[in-house]
Nucleic acid binder design. Sequence first.
DNA 1: TAAAAAATTTAGACTTATCTAAATTATGAA
DNA 2: TTCATAATTTAGATAAGTCTAAATTTTTTA
Lengths: 217, 217
Amino acid sequence: MNTLAEENYLKSIYHLSINAENVSTNQIAASLNTKASSVTDMLKKLADKALINYTKYQGVSLTSSGEKIAVNIIRKHRLWEYFLVEKLKFKWDQVHDMAEEMEHISSAELIDRLDEFMDYPQHDPHGEPIPDCNGRFKASELKPISTLSVHDSGTISGVRDHSSSFLQYLEKQQLTLGKKISIMEIVEFDHSMIIQMENKKEIHISREAANNLLIAL
Amino acid sequence: MNTLAEENYLKSIYHLSINAENVSTNQIAASLNTKASSVTDMLKKLADKALINYTKYQGVSLTSSGEKIAVNIIRKHRLWEYFLVEKLKFKWDQVHDMAEEMEHISSAELIDRLDEFMDYPQHDPHGEPIPDCNGRFKASELKPISTLSVHDSGTISGVRDHSSSFLQYLEKQQLTLGKKISIMEIVEFDHSMIIQMENKKEIHISREAANNLLIAL
DNA sequence: TAAAAAATTTAGACTTATCTAAATTATGAA
DNA sequence: TTCATAATTTAGATAAGTCTAAATTTTTTA
């Protein structure tokens, strides 16, 4: 088994790998709130365990066994988030930190039974896909609404930022998963957008918000 | 917050305190599978935090704040065990190690909602009382069937040993919680007992088993 | 393309929790 | 009540994970 710190590094590398082939020491340090020197130490350790491909000064990528572990942790995280929202009635902005602890519970049988108990959910409360017990899932085909043009429309299906401040803002604006929206206007000056809800109400959202709100194709 | 190691020491001291006023270094070492010298180090640390009363060479007891923490961990342990058995359909002999990890999940709101979700169970799958959110619970008024006499009878309501070997043995003999039994004979030679089940079937159990099987008064 | 800046690694130190071996204190049997 | 034994503590070491400061490598830019 791997330590808690190792698991967190693998997960962080996995998430950062979505944007780039290789992940840098500084990126990992920033995402884990540690110092670059601490990261270097851990990278050596993970490389020794054959969980990452690491060449000094060149950044890292996960090996297939490293990726397997990372995906499993993400599976656990997302299933626990689903549990917290669907069964224990937490709001989607409250569950991240709890799931961050729960994802390290080791038993595979526990998580498989939890999956069954909840009837094999496909997406977590933020719209992220939940890997199955073999680590398989379809990559989300979502894109930020900031990429849409005027008159485009679609269904809100995910968020990129999971911070409670963002999620609470969305909640307040009723911009929650499943809601249908249309782009009414894009303000050229600051790239903010005016969008229309199903109930015809119009909302003005910033470029930053638009970048973090995802829509199904 | 306290570290995982600290929490395990407090829990261990709490459990050992049931038999004695003061708990010895060696008892703690045995229960946690560590060395006495490691225990001494930790005792100093816990005493500094005012979680235990500690005088060199004299053993320890929990302070009220130490006890509060210990009871809270036990509450979490027992609620998670109940969840695993009632919701995820694990057997009572499978849940201990998982709960041992889950009891360290920190959120109080999570555990209170879990409690509510399960409709405030009073006892865990082994018959142990579950403390409420204020740490209150009625001490179990159970006694080992080894203390009974011939012709006495009662309902199996708890076990003292939570090892899966013992629990599996009980399962096989149908000696599970809620079953009514009567003492038919006590073998003087080895203190083993012949007991009768509701269905009139007779079972012969060792003194050791009788010591670990608890009955409601 | 060489110097400056940024990124990364190394060196050495600290904390937590553990260990072994040695020293000290308490206990109980003669 | 003393002395052997058991229990406990102390001293010093180790491993994991982190840190700061210094050194090194890579990248950028002029």
